[in-house]
Simulated scan of single mutants.
Amino acid sequence: MELKAVIDEFILYIQIEKNYSDHTITSYEYDLVQFLSFLRKSNGSTDVACITKTHVRRFIQHQMGMCKQKPRSMHRKISCLKSFTKYCLQEKYLMSDFMASIESPKTDKKLPVYMTLTDLQQLFQMLSEEHSSLSLRNEAMFKLLATSGMRRNELVTLTWEEVDFSSQYIRIYGKGKKERLVPLHPVVLPLLQAYKATRKKHQCHPSQPVFLNKLGKPLDPRGLHAIFKNALRKSGLPPSRFSLHHLRHTFATLMLQGNKENVDLRTLQELLGHESITSTEVYTHVEFEQKKKAIDSFDIF
């Protein structure tokens, strides 16, 4: 069967049956179309049954050589191809898995960048002191992100029906549309209530997004990112140093560092919506690095 037709089927499968996020679907489709294009340009067969490990290895070589793809990007492409071949085997389009012995290139494990408590307090102070038509929205948004560990896409898609003021929690639909409940911080709860009170009646309908742009339209991730960079500038923090995702890292790191009696890795995993606890364990490495710096700076000799 032609690879293009199987790709179309696979994309429909992960969208309808697997309920993958829009971002993952777009990324997987891009990677598979890229692989198909490579096969065509290299005069390789585009029949699924004729694809071999050699084709895949040459694709990886081309991506990392000619296209200068970084190991982290190749890791995603290989993961995509592995999911694709698993589907092909399931549907009997393949008799053997051409990805079976393909390994991802080694990546440097980088510790996540995060804001210190002083940085975060500096940002919070600016947000609470600013007076503009959008200042209450911005304060509610960024304090919610910093106290919940939400992803930026989870914030812009948050609707009023997912905010439970009486039980004081939010319902978040994360990657793969997985659902989790996250308690609202006592400081954020009245901020959200005050912000909602400024909204027009139709904007507070349960189905409506919580956060809107200056035109009253739903925020998009790119717009939210720009607002955050502007908030950093006003706070006296370097916009080039931090991104919105670093607020998520900050939440996780500060939570583990300063609240050990109430937080363990499993709780943090649930709060962040990580599928595997391995993803959460990176924050223990951050803490270790801080301990090492403290020991190294202990100048007694």
Rank of each mutant, 00 (worst) to 15 (best):
F38Y: 12
I78Y: 02
S104I: 06
K292M: 13
M126Q: 12
C80F: 08
D164P: 09
P186Q: 05
L127K: 04
V56T: 07
D264T: 06
N43D: 14
Q168H: 08
K293R: 15
S207M: 11
L212E: 06
P186R: 04
S79H: 12
P209L: 13
L237W: 11
D108E: 11
L189Q: 05
S297T: 08
R151C: 01
S21L: 01
P112R: 04
S167F: 12
L268C: 02
G149M: 01
P112V: 05
E91L: 05
H246W: 14
S167Y: 14
E275Y: 10
Y87I: 09
A231K: 12
G149D: 00
V182F: 02
Y195S: 02
C67P: 04
L256R: 02
K229G: 03
T198A: 04
Y30E: 15
T118F: 15
H23P: 06
L36T: 09
H131F: 06
W160S: 04
Q121G: 06
L215V: 10
N138H: 04
K214P: 03
L144G: 01
P218L: 01
E130D: 03
R222Q: 06
T116G: 09
K109T: 13
M115R: 05
I11K: 15
H225E: 12
I300S: 15
E17A: 05
K41S: 13
L224E: 00
M115N: 01
S276H: 09
L136T: 00
T116N: 05
R40E: 15
I14Q: 14
N19G: 01
G216K: 10
D47S: 14
E281Y: 05
K196T: 07
K291Y: 09
G149I: 02
E179P: 04
F251R: 01
